[in-house]
Amino acid sequence: MARRSYNSNGGIGFICVCVVVMSVVVSGRPTTFLEDFRVTWADSHVKELDGGRGIQLLLDRSSGCGFASKRQYLFGKVSMKIKLVPGDSAGTVTAFYMNSDTDTIRDELDFEFLGNRSGQPYTVQTNIYAHGKGDREQRVNLWFDPAADFHTYSIRWTHSLIVFGVDDIPIRVYKNHEAKGIPYPKQQPMGIYSTLWEADDWATRGGLEKIDWNKAPFYAYYKDFDIEGCPVPGPANCPSNPNNWWEAPSYQSLSPLEARNYRWVRMNHMIYDYCTDKSRYPVTPPECVAGI
């Protein structure tokens, strides 16, 4: 198992944990953004902050920008703290996601933060691609202003379920129902990506609210990146190791507190669920019937 993390306070660097005959070896060193990640486009729009322990993404008329992890991972948990575009951010999308970087059989786990007109709630859309099939969107209005301060967004991915979290509150759960013939992403490693881009044809109120370039440039900020998972390439037995912390029985379902918070989010803040969209799906998708 590999863990890499860093934070704006200097935090933990690289930790390699190896268990051999009940012994544990731990080593560490400081790390920075560019040791784990690479800029994927418009490097002039990505700025390192605090000695590389944080970054700023910029969107203007000329370009958006993005970054990705240098390695792919199979199972585990990834998280980062993000402060989203403030003010009138209509038409902008800030994305944080995992992707297998394959075409016809793509696996992907998405957070997409949809910009708003000033004073309106910020909406986060999640989506899941398994074996090339996506179109599993859910949307939640965040219950705080995500542009006023940093908040932690996480994806926990085990053999049993996928949990999207906001400040440790689950907002989306996708369970492994392979036994019922429903695809589940577990064969392909995925990289970690983030982008800031313009999508005013759909992002805000279905495209009714367009981006106001007079408000540009738009900024999003990131820090406290944390990757805990099995790197690929890496030890072949890591992804199937039942001793990985995320495969412990307590992580194969929601805790009682997580379950209460999850129900609260769905009852009070969910504004769209593909499972109940009869115009798109006259027949309820099988994973919805099985229990997502």
Rank of each mutant, 00 (worst) to 15 (best):
Lys47Leu: 14
Glu112Ile: 01
Thr40Lys: 15
Gly234Cys: 12
Ser8Cys: 06
Leu208Val: 03
Phe113Ile: 12
Asp50Gly: 09
His131Phe: 04
Val20Leu: 08
Gln138Tyr: 01
Val21Ser: 15
Tyr174Ile: 14
Arg29Trp: 05
Cys65Lys: 05
Ser160Cys: 13
Asp168Gln: 06
Val46His: 07
Ala148Pro: 00
Thr123Cys: 14
Gly165Phe: 09
Asn214Leu: 00
Asn244Ala: 10
Asn176Ala: 10
Cys230Glu: 00
Gln187His: 14
Glu287Thr: 01
Tyr274Arg: 07
Thr152Cys: 04
Gly13Ser: 11
Asp224Arg: 08
Cys288Met: 04
Ala290Trp: 03
Tyr153Cys: 05
Tyr97Ala: 05
Phe113Val: 08
Gly52Gln: 03
Ser118His: 09
Ser118Trp: 10
His151Ser: 12
Gly11Pro: 02
Lys81Met: 11
Glu287Trp: 03
Ser240Pro: 11
Glu228Asn: 15
Leu59Asn: 14
Asp277Trp: 04
Pro282Thr: 09
Thr94Gln: 14
Arg139Phe: 04
Leu142Val: 01
His151Cys: 07
Asn99His: 07
Tyr274Thr: 06
Glu258Ser: 07
Gly165Pro: 01
Pro239Ser: 12
Ser62Gly: 13
Trp245Phe: 08
Gln125Ser: 00
Gly134Pro: 02
Val24Thr: 08
Thr276Cys: 09
Ala248Asp: 15
Gly234Val: 07
Cys65Arg: 06
Tyr174Gln: 11
Glu198Lys: 10
Tyr174Cys: 07
Ile271Gly: 08
Asp212Ser: 13
Gly207Met: 06
Ser5Asp: 02
Val283Ala: 14
Pro185Ala: 15
